[in-house]
Structures are given as structure tokens and as C-alpha cells.
Computed example of a mutant assay.
Amino acid sequence: MAGGWSSDGAVQEQIDSSIEDAIARARSQLPSGASLSHCEECHTPIPLARQQAVPGVRLCIQCQAELDRQQLHSSGYNRRGSKDSQLR
């Protein structure tokens, strides 16, 4: 049921659009090309199993975990989805 000036299905369209944007962003961050034998950041050897499991890997597990933590804190998406959080 639409309210105000929004059309029927507008909320679902917004949700779908947010999901598509998140998927595109995640795909753009996937590594590509040949895996490195040593980490770009700390220069420690990357295990062969990791190189084979993640094609195009550039970071060791520790450096990748740190990068993931930093990206988690800088996420610009509204995960709550409530009106109050959107108005702030």
C-alpha cells in the first residue's frame, strides 16, 4: 500500500535498488588476475592454499581481516531502515 506521493511498490523498489548497489560494490572489490605470492601490505608469504582458493588474492589473511574491519566501519548504508534513522 502506497502512502503520500509514493507509488505502489516504491518501498520494494528502493530495497531492490539498495541490494543491487551493494552487490555491484561487492563485485567491484573482488580481486582479479593472478594471485600474489607475498602480501602487498606486509610482504609475508601468502599460503598456496589461499592463492588457489581466492584467485587474484593480494593480501594475507591478517591484512585482509584488517581491511574488512575498516570497510565495515565506513559503510554508508542505513541498515536499520526505520524512518527515524533516515531523518537523522
Results as ranks from 00 to 15, higher is better:
S85Q: 06
Q70P: 02
G4I: 10
R58P: 07
S18W: 04
G3K: 14
I19S: 01
M1H: 11
C39M: 02
G33T: 04
A53P: 04
Q52D: 11
D68T: 15
S75T: 09
C63R: 10
S37Y: 05
Q52I: 10
C60Y: 14
Q51S: 04
A24P: 00
A26I: 06
G4C: 06
A10F: 12
V57G: 09
A26P: 01
C42H: 05
R25G: 01
P31I: 00
V11A: 09
R27V: 03
S28T: 00
P55L: 05
I15G: 00
C39I: 05
S28V: 00
A24V: 02
V54W: 10
L59Q: 12
G81C: 03
I61T: 15
S35L: 04
S85I: 03
P45C: 02
V57W: 11
A65E: 14
V57S: 07
N78K: 05
G3L: 13
Q64V: 02
T44Q: 07
M1P: 13
S37V: 14
E66R: 15
Q70D: 11
A65W: 13
M1K: 15
A22Q: 08
L30S: 06
D8T: 14
N78V: 05
P31Q: 00
L67E: 14
P45Q: 04
R79E: 02
S17I: 00
A22I: 02
H43M: 09
H73F: 13
S7Q: 08
S6T: 15
I46N: 01
E41M: 03
V11M: 04
R58S: 15
I19P: 01
L30W: 05
E13P: 01
L67Y: 10
G56E: 07
V11K: 12
P45E: 08
H38G: 01
S85P: 01
S28I: 00
I19E: 03
S18A: 08
L48W: 14
D16H: 10
A2N: 14
P45S: 05
Y77L: 04
A26Q: 07
I15R: 07
S74Q: 14
Q86G: 12
Q51M: 14
G3F: 15
G4D: 07
P45G: 00
Y77R: 14
I61W: 13
L59G: 09
G3Y: 15
E41Q: 04
L48E: 15
L87A: 08
Q14I: 11
H73L: 15
C63A: 09
L59C: 06
G33P: 08
R25N: 02
R25F: 03
I61Y: 13
R50Q: 13
S74I: 05
R25C: 00
D16S: 09
H43G: 02
E66C: 07
G56M: 05
E20A: 10
I46K: 03
I46Q: 01
R50A: 06
A49G: 06
